[in-house]
């Protein structure tokens, strides 16, 4: 994030037209309507307009500038709804600095900060606040649900509720510090992503050996002695089949022609073939 995406804008200049209450209200409007009119053409533009609208009305005294500003925010926008709040807060801060005497340059500053921040924030956001916590808390919830307990769903719900405060805080920090905030956070975020990745990967490892279930009824008999294929496999390594299947799908997903939906089709096919040749059996 280089400093030149905020040309002619100095956050220290006392041109604040909003108070924190306006910014908080902009956050809540985003919270309740971030992707309310998600569409292929402009994706989250509807949420942006809903969130910023009243604050923009307060910032721009002239009807012309207000209309123009709204019009520009109807343009394409897409980010992670949780961390992307930084981009929206920063956008409000730059909107405040729009100079009616010099509309072209200052309007461009608004668009640049919004679009410059949305991509990186989506990447960071998807990993740190979403996918990794989803793995950890979602997997625990699903694992406990498999055991017939509903208690596990408290983990993801509590996490998501606590994150409301983080989402709001990021919006405010985006407004107060703009892109500078992202730069200061960048290093810490990378360390955090690394650490969260370790926790996530460990839970995934545990998932392989706890939630994948396969029954192998095949029994070899030689004279009097019978050996169950399952116990032979277990002697090599417990949960060997789930580990091998995970490795296979992981490898296949690296291929260009493979996607998650096809992988699911493939696994269903494997299950049927395994059933017909007698390799896999049902639980009972």
């Amino acid at each position: 994030m280089s400093s030149d995406i905020m040309p002619a804008v100095d956050p220290a200049v006392p041109t604040k037209k909003l108070d924190l209450k306006d910014v908080k209200s902009a956050f809540w409007r985003w919270f309740f309507g971030a992707q309310i009119a998600w569409n292929y053409e402009t994706m989250q533009s509807g949420g942006v307009v809903l969130s910023l609208g009243p604050a923009l009305r307060k910032i721009h005294s002239g009807d012309g500038m207000f209309k123009r500003s709204l019009d520009e925010h109807f343009a394409f926008f897409n980010t992670n709804p949780w961390t992307g709040t930084i981009a929206l807060g920063a956008t409000l801060a730059v909107e405040e600095q729009v100079d009616p005497a010099e509309p072209e340059a200052s309007r461009e500053a608004v668009t640049s900060i919004k679009t410059a921040l949305m991509g990186p924030l989506a990447g960071i956001g998807d990993a740190i606040v979403f996918v990794i916590p989803m793995t950890i808390t979602g997997a625990i919830a699903a694992y406990m649900a498999q055991q017939g307990s509903w208690i596990g769903i408290l983990f993801p719900i509590i996490y998501s509720v606590l994150m409301i405060f983080v989402r709001r805080w990021l919006y405010l920090m985006g407004y107060l510090q703009g892109s500078k905030f992202v730069t200061t956070l960048a290093h810490q975020l990378r360390s955090l992503a690394d650490a969260a990745g370790v926790l996530g990967v460990m839970v995934i490892g545990a998932l392989i050996s706890s939630v994948v279930t396969v029954h192998i009824p095949t029994v070899f008999s030689q004279g009097q002695a019978t050996v169950a294929l399952q116990s032979t496999l277990d002697m090599i390594m417990p949960n060997l089949v789930p580990a091998l299947l995970t490795g296979l799908v992981y490898w296949l997903l690296g291929k260009k022609w493979m996607n998650s939906t096809r992988a699911i089709g493939l696994i269903i096919a494997v299950a049927f073939v395994g059933y017909f040749i007698g390799l896999f059996g049902t639980a009972a």
């Binding site: 998932l207 994948v212 279930t213 299947l245 995970t246 696994i267 639980a283």
Partner: peptide, 9 residues
């Protein structure tokens, strides 16, 4: 029983 493999991978 096998499908979780996809999510994990």
């Amino acid at each position: 029983g096998l499908l979780p493999v996809v999510g994990i991978a």
